[in-house]
Structures are given as structure tokens and as C-alpha cells.
Amino acid sequence: IMVIACNTATAAALRLAQQVLDVPVIGVIAPGARAAINSTRTRRVGVLATNLTIRSGAYTRAIQDLDAGVDVYGCPASSFVEVVEHELASGAHLQEQWLENEDIFDTPAVRALVGATVEPLRDHGIDTVVLGCTHFPLLVGPIRHALGPGVRVVSSAEETTRELTDILTRREQLAGDDAEPQHRFATTADNIAEFAVAGSFIFGQPLKSIEHIDIDELK
């Protein structure tokens, strides 16, 4: 089974990947949409995502396919990606702190940026917001602060993890606790050193080897 662990890539290429690959492929949008439907009581849902994901309308379709009566309000927040990627790539000195403190990104500057970005959502009376980018859970503290305690926050990444666990459990393919994980890291980024730093944040340990793949090879 393959997971497209990116909302933008899911919006752009999930159907094609499912058609051309020989293994089951799941994306992160449908699990996030289902969680939003289960969470909302007012049937007014906000979506924070990249510009491309918002423009694609993928979340609106996925949510309204489940409940056509839900109003969906998209809010582009590509600047959140820039904040997270900059810190993950350049903030190596923060790694130990970040692993021990998930609110390391909750700073006055980030709160100001998040508050200004989510301002349009406050006018729609939403009670649930979907974090429609796998970068955004790192900013969940400032996002919750900006939207207030009356808005539930749903992470598409966390919901996909739960759904994948359920799928593998039903298929009896879930690895046991004593299984040795196998990792292979590859990137199309030119700066492998920055990718290595970011990866060490995510996995909590240095990446042993990284393969560079040229975009032309993928084509």
C-alpha cells in the first residue's frame, strides 16, 4: 500500500496514481474530510491548506460528497509551509528542543502570521477546521490560539495514520511491535543537506543515507 502524504499531491495526482500503480494508493484528503464531518456540529467547516489545494476544490468535494449540507470555507495558507520548512532546514540547533517541546514553533511572530492568515475564517462561524497540509500540525498551537477554543482542529495527517492502521489491521498486514522498520530516503531537492536536517527533525535521529532523484527520472 502507498500513502501520498501530501495534500497538494493528493489533490493533483491521487486518481492518476491509483490508475497506473499496481498497489493500493490512499491520499490524505478523504480521511481529513471524514474527520471534519464527524467533528462539526454547525456544518460549517474551514480548511487551511496550500493555495493549490484550496484552488483545486478537493476538500470541498470530499466533504460535500459525504454531507452536501456542509458549508466549506477554504483559506490559503502557503506561508505556513515556508515558516515550517525554513525552520526545519536551517534550525538544526532547535532539534533537541523541538523533540522535547512540540510548541517550539509557537512564537509571537508565528502567532501574528497565523492570526492574520486565518482572519477570513472568523467571519463564517466555523466550528471545525481541517489542517489540509502535513506541515501545519507543527503550528497547531498558534492556529488554536488564533481560532479560539470553540473551533475543533482536525489534522489530515493524523487521520490518515489512523485510517492506514485500520486498513493494515483488517488485512492482517500491520507489523508487530518487535518488527524492525526499514527506511529508504529519496529527494528531488538540490540541497540534500537541508533535506537531511529536516528529516532528522521528523524521525528524531540522523538519516543514514539519502538518494537524490532527478525530476527527469520520475518523468
Rank of each mutant, 00 (worst) to 15 (best):
V3Y: 11
V3P: 09
V3F: 11
V3A: 15
I4C: 06
A5R: 01
A5V: 02
C6H: 03
N7H: 08
N7R: 00
T8H: 01
T8P: 05
A9W: 00
A11Q: 05
A11H: 01
A12C: 06
A12L: 14
A13Y: 00
L14V: 02
L14F: 01
R15Y: 01
L16K: 13
L16G: 11
L16T: 14
A17V: 03
V20I: 15
L21V: 07
L21W: 13
L21N: 15
P24F: 13
V25T: 10
V25Y: 02
I26K: 01
I26S: 09
G27L: 07
G27S: 08
V28E: 04
I29R: 03
I29Q: 03
A30Y: 08
P31V: 09
G32F: 04
G32C: 07
G32D: 03
A33P: 07
R34F: 01
A35Y: 01
A36Q: 03
A36K: 04
N38C: 10
N38Q: 14
T40M: 02
T42M: 05
R44I: 07
R44D: 11
R44Y: 05
V45P: 06
V47D: 08
V47K: 02
L48W: 02
A49V: 04
A49Y: 06
T50V: 01
T50K: 00
L52A: 15
L52R: 08
T53C: 10
T53D: 08
I54H: 07
S56D: 11
S56C: 07
G57W: 06
G57P: 08
A58S: 15
A58I: 08
A58Y: 06
Y59T: 07
T60K: 10
R61I: 06
A62P: 04
A62T: 09
I63P: 07
I63C: 10
I63A: 10
Q64M: 11
Q64N: 13
D65G: 15
D65M: 11
L66F: 03
L66K: 04
L66Y: 01
L66D: 12
A68P: 08
G69M: 03
G69P: 03
V70A: 14
D71F: 05
V72P: 07
V72Q: 07
Y73K: 04
G74Q: 07
G74A: 10
G74M: 09
G74N: 08
P76C: 10
F80Y: 10
V81E: 14
V81Q: 08
V84T: 10
E85Q: 12
H86L: 05
E87T: 13
L88H: 06
A89D: 15
S90V: 10
S90K: 10
G91Y: 13
G91I: 11
G91A: 13
